[in-house]
Design a protein around this nucleic acid. Structure first.
Ligand code: ZN
Ligand code: ZN
Ligand code: ZN
Ligand code: ZN
Lengths: 148, 148
DNA sequence: TACGAAGTGAGATGTTGTCTCAATTATACG
DNA sequence: CGTATAATTGAGACAACATCTCACTTCGTA
């Protein structure tokens, strides 16, 4: 799925940042968990593996990793955000706005677009996020019955 | 840009919800403001137009409007979310992970994909969100200098 | 008019995110 | 391998954000 952990670690050092324990554990947790996790879930999982890691450091790590393009933040149609490792082999999300269930898509419609952006805007593309919203089959008849 | 306010109001009633003052004002604020606004900005703007509207109702309206596909929530690479009216004529975001500046794109690479999803997954597509992350020209040389 | 369902405002409460600062540690260099 | 040093950390205070409860209002319908 995502780039190997080793490659990510190397990347952090290459950018001039230290590869510290909090950063390493956050990455491992994201790699081992669900496709996307809330910040509090990440904090809990990190402290299970490394009880001495502070909450602030988890947030700081997530912020850095987002800047590096290693991690992506998404709202998934909600008020609070979730984090995920940026998938190397592109997967987009189909999100049901009623029940919040998601389906992962393995096709990508943006590769060509990305290339053209680099030249048109001088933009150094790190990755992209695509979320398609709607109602899943089950929720089309009984709207407003979101279980989550 | 987005569907006309009148069309949105009609839509709310058509779905069986009441068109109340909080809901109307939230929509007006989103239509009149920046392309995307944080929840607290929305609350402030709403209370300027209608001081008697409670914060909870603003959140409730945003939640409903998101379920209806009228509003989209996005993280824009940050820990806190922003809201925007779902653009009728598709615009995608190019987001700089360093300085948070964004560029709006007016092309859409997903229309065909959307159609095929409907048949393959029985999914009733309401809209989609595309964010492309990277570093803008100015931030490629001096990373970590985010002003915002 | 009486009813019930849907919606609301206020504020308590809970959750999430940020900040400060002394103490610690990863890395480069000798 | 120490040592120097700047980056990074943990703790907990703090601030912002989001949700929940509940009595009250609104509105369509009988
Ligand atoms: Zn659903
Ligand atoms: Zn893609
Ligand atoms: Zn930038
Ligand atoms: Zn599009």
């Amino acid at each position: 799925m995502s780039a190997s952990l080793h490659a990510i670690f190397k990347r952090i050092r290459a950018e001039g940042y230290k590869l510290t324990r909090p950063r390493r554990v956050v990455i491992e947790v994201l790699a081992g968990g669900e496709t996307h996790m809330g910040a509090s879930e990440i904090v809990a999982a990190v402290r299970q593996k490394a009880p001495d890691v502070g909450r602030a450091s988890v947030y700081r790590a997530l912020e850095l990793l987002t800047r590096l393009g290693v991690v992506q933040v998404s709202a998934m149609g909600r008020a609070t955000t979730v984090y995920m490792l940026t998938p190397a082999c592109c997967h987009h999300h189909l999100v049901c706005v009623e029940c919040r269930r998601t389906v992962e898509l393995n096709e990508c419609a943006l590769r060509d677009l990305e290339k053209s952006l680099a030249s048109r805007f001088g933009f150094q593309v790190q990755g992209h996020l695509v979320e398609i919203y709607g109602r899943c089959e089950a929720c089309q008849d009984n709207p407003g019955s979101a279980p989550l």
